[in-house]
Every structure is written in C-alpha cells, then in structure tokens.
C-alpha cells in the first residue's frame, strides 16, 4: 500500500469520539493490518496535523498513548517508529478483548434472533 492509500483507508476522523483517541486507534489499526511494519516510521505529528487538519496537541496526545502502550517509540530528532513486537502486543490485547467485545455481543444478538447455541456454532463453522 502506498502512503496515500494508507491515508485514505484509515484516516477518517468524524465519529463523536475524542479526536486523540481516534488518532491512536487509527495508527494502531494500521500497525495491526501491517500497513506500518515494525521498525517503520509512522507519520509525524506535524504531518498528521497538516494533512487532516487536527491540532498538533491533540495528535501528540494520541501518539503519547501509543508510546505509553509500547506500540511506538520516539527516536530523538528523527521521529516515531513502530516498536519491535508492537504487532504481537496488539494481537494479544485484541484477543483478550475479543470475548468481551465480540463474542458476548454476538450471543446477545443471536438470542434476540432466537438462534440456538447449536445453530450459532454451525453458522460460525460455515463462516470459517
């Protein structure tokens, strides 16, 4: 994917969530899908700020969340890079959240539609 494509696919800031969270989430998503490989440079605060018209303080706050989570590292005077093992960290975290966020929701929805446990398992098998 070229840089421009990355921008088009991921950076879409318009939900009602705080913008700094959206910044963090979108970069995380790009690391997860491999658009930014480990060790690759992520766009600078200024670039994101300029290209998406977001206040740099807000962008920085989002970036700092990722730094704290160990997903990206600051290299002084050069920029921000995807940390070694960042992908694994994201996968690990998303797996833990998978049951809570997705499975429970799925079962709730299935119950509302009167889909039985067996039927749901069959559906999942079919989808796999």
């Amino acid at each position: 994917m070229t840089d421009d494509e990355v921008k088009r696919v991921y950076f879409n800031f318009n939900s009602a969530e705080p913008i700094y969270l959206q910044v963090a989430q979108q970069i995380e998503e790009a690391i997860f899908t491999g658009s930014y490989h480990e060790g690759a440079q992520v766009p600078s605060t200024t670039e994101i700020s300029r290209d998406f018209h977001i206040n740099p303080a807000t962008v920085l706050k989002g970036m700092n969340r990722l730094v704290e989570a160990g997903l990206i590292v600051k290299k002084r005077g050069i920029g921000m890079f995807v940390a070694e093992g960042a992908h694994a960290v994201i996968v690990d975290r998303r797996r833990k959240a998978f049951y809570q966020d997705k499975v429970i929701q799925l079962i709730k929805e299935a119950k509302g539609l009167q889909i039985s446990e067996g039927e749901l398992v069959d559906l999942i098998k079919r989808g796999f």
Partner: peptide, 10 residues
Amino acid sequence: FYRELMENYA
C-alpha cells in the same frame, strides 16, 4: 488554508 495554518503553527 487549513493545511497552511497547521504547517505555520507547527
């Protein structure tokens, strides 16, 4: 303009 404003501000 928004681009330039952000660039200038940075």
